[in-house]
């Protein structure tokens, strides 16, 4: 998955939950602190990523950043 594809999913989750879409994310972007994701948004995020990739990115516990998330997906590829 590319950063752009991930941004699309992130923004879908944000707008689904009455939050403003982000113009961009970087590997350093933090899911909770920077994107303001709470438990419900994180839960939705991992399910939407799983739909595309088959991978539950929080299956081994929560992670902090977009970079770590992309890393989870690469390891599995």
């Amino acid at each position: 998955m590319t950063t752009e594809q991930l941004l699309e999913i992130v923004n879908l989750v944000l707008t689904n939950n009455q939050k403003t879409a982000k113009p961009s994310v970087t590997p350093e972007t933090r899911l909770r602190e920077d994107l303001g994701m709470d438990s419900f948004l994180l839960a939705e995020l991992t399910v939407r990523i799983e739909q595309m990739t088959g991978i539950d990115v929080f299956g081994d516990g929560l992670i902090d950043t977009v970079g770590e998330l992309l890393g989870k997906l690469e390891v599995h590829v």
Binding site: F40, L42, A43, E44, T46, V47, D56, F58, L62
Partner: peptide, 10 residues
């Protein structure tokens, strides 16, 4: 409910 790693169920 669908099993979920964050909320237990989604």
């Amino acid at each position: 409910g669908k099993p979920n790693s964050v909320l237990g169920n989604l």
